[in-house]
Design a binder for these strands. Structure first.
Lengths: 325, 325
DNA sequence: ATACAATGTGGTACCGGTTACACATAATAT
DNA sequence: ATATTATGTGTAACCGGTACCACATTGTAT
């Protein structure tokens, strides 16, 4: 593989001139451009990005830390981030944290040793000091890490309110709220939104905590559906809603006739279920894309107009509630 | 940030000794180890992996090229690859190709400029010259790229045969095969397996090509279900099967009573559908893990015992066929 | 005519590691 | 006693770029 000195020699100029040509900075004559371009072509020269990074102390990639890419919430986010990164010639490193603090720290360290340009993180901890004293730009998605760290997320409280109102409007009178893990910002916010909607109304409610996992959600829902006559479920994630649908099915409870269900997130999964799931959709692609653009701005040293972006959640009415098809 | 010279100075030794210590190669006295270790500790020194890569011409990461991480087939694969990579201190770069040859080439080039250690690729093309003359190790998953490139995949023909036999055993007499895009190795193999199973039997069949996408699959299935009295569907992917389930539901055809459906892949999606989908499962995690281990062997210059690994596919009987729950 | 900017180019130190080579000493073999 | 090997360490070139600085030349303002 040819290096910059080979190119300089072949073109009959100095390496400094070649470097200027490659980076399009400083003065270069048209003549020099021509000979260098020809030499680059002839040698099929590609600059070593590693050597470049050693100087600039910045490699053209960004670290994406998510709990688990298998959770259908994250692939869409990852996809959007990758699309924007590609546009700016960045490359995305995928890191699964399993919500374990040691894994987060491991990746933070390792990637910094590789001169990563920045991080996008869907964190999961109250313990955040390892994020706040980083010397690399970072953007949080979905969950707030710390007031000092820019965030892109949806208005979870409002979204949950809208979703719950929909159940109410459809006549539900005994509603189960499957809230997410407590301590997790969005889960708490969604619970608040749920409460906002039911408060002061003549509605029976039941709240249960359920992880963002299918199997656990199914069994939790099954237990409750067996004991009580629930006519509406507001689930804090599509995965939990899917678990609830399965539980209802296995108990012979028909959806949406006897039981109406609203999910949250607007993942692909929601649309692929049968009947398809009414859900409070977050525009996951947009969240990812905005976070990515934000991070790149920070990397480039630009100022952010807004440090926190709230996306509106939108109710998508489908087959698990009665006003849907 | 401290560098190796700082450490050497603080420890009162040369940089060569520090380097030997860090890489655990060559002779180092216990005394030297102690003082260096102390200096490293005190300065909180982390070696620059970029500087290291510039020498070794190899960065500790591997490129993963998939058509689209949003397709539920790939996250599980990616997860497995990442887990194994982590074990060996590699880091995974996620690349979505959208099945476009230019994007594949772009990533191949860019990552080589970054001294990527190797690639794992779920390719999608007949055109493969850009893969074969790479000077970096590469392993194919799911789809064969070229006889010269190691492969980890399942026995698609056999898997499809087993899946189809199951429909036959359950009494289906008019079966629709939703095959994948032609030209794609696994899709063709699965069609062959389907034919193997129905050949010579008194069965009516119908074959239609359908992409691995939910919406398209749904509308294709709906059209055919409206026109013909199908009692069994063998779909070449879980996503297509999910589309077919939705189509049946919207036409008022009950699954599995009037129509039985078998999917393929064994993705999480299959288990989360209602009723849950009988599917020919590939052990996606294992495919990913094996491919990852294989690639790392190649990177380390070791010989492979086998250049092609076939995983057996396994039928998981669930709710969309009658012998299931 | 003189000063000063704009344009263009080259030499070389530097980023932070690795490693070939030289060299010294201690232990073992002949 | 001498040759040989094992152990331990340092010097400096090198990986392949970037960028500071010096230096020329040409154009323009005073």
């Amino acid at each position: 593989m040819a290096n910059i000195r080979d190119v300089a020699q072949k073109a009959g100029v100095s390496v400094a001139t070649v470097s200027r040509y490659l980076n399009n900075k400083g003065y270069i004559s048209e003549e020099a451009k021509r000979v260098i371009s020809a030499a680059v072509e002839e040698l099929n020269y590609r600059p070593s990005l590693v050597a470049r990074s050693l100087n600039t102390k910045q490699a053209m990639f960004i670290g994406l830390i998510v709990p688990d890419i298998v959770n259908p919430f994250f692939p869409e986010l990852a996809r959007a981030i990758e699309d924007v990164a590609l546009e700016y010639d960045y490359t995305v490193v995928l890191c699964n944290s399993d919500e374990k603090i040691e894994k987060e720290i491991h990746y933070l360290n390792t990637l910094q040793q590789k001169y990563v340009a920045g991080f996008i993180v869907a964190a999961s901890h109250a313990e955040t000091s390892h994020y706040t004293d980083l010397n690399v730009p970072i953007v949080a998605i979905d969950r707030r890490i710390h007031p000092s760290i820019p965030l892109v997320a949806t208005d979870n409280r409002e979204g949950a309110r809208i979703g719950t109102e929909h159940l109410l409007a459809n006549g539900c009178r005994k509603i189960l709220c499957m809230k997410g893990p407590s301590g997790l910002g969005p889960a708490d916010d969604r619970l608040m939104g749920f409460m906002d909607a039911v408060e002061g109304k003549d509605i029976e409610i039941e709240v249960v905590e359920s992880p963002f996992q299918f199997d656990a959600s199914e069994s939790i829902a099954r237990t409750i559906l067996q004991q009580q006559s629930i006519d509406g479920i507001f689930a804090s994630s599509d995965v939990s809603a899917a678990g609830a649908m399965k539980a209802a099915y296995s108990l012979g409870i028909s959806v949406p006739d006897q039981l109406q269900i609203v999910g949250y997130d607007g993942t692909m999964l929601a649309g692929q279920l049968t009947p398809s799931l009414t859900t409070v959709a977050q525009d996951l692609y947009q969240i990812g894309a905005l976070a990515s653009r934000m991070l790149i701005k920070l990397i480039e040293g630009k100022e952010l107009e807004e440090r926190e972006i709230q996306i509106q959640a939108e109710l998508i009415i489908r087959g698990t509630t009665r006003s849907g098809a």
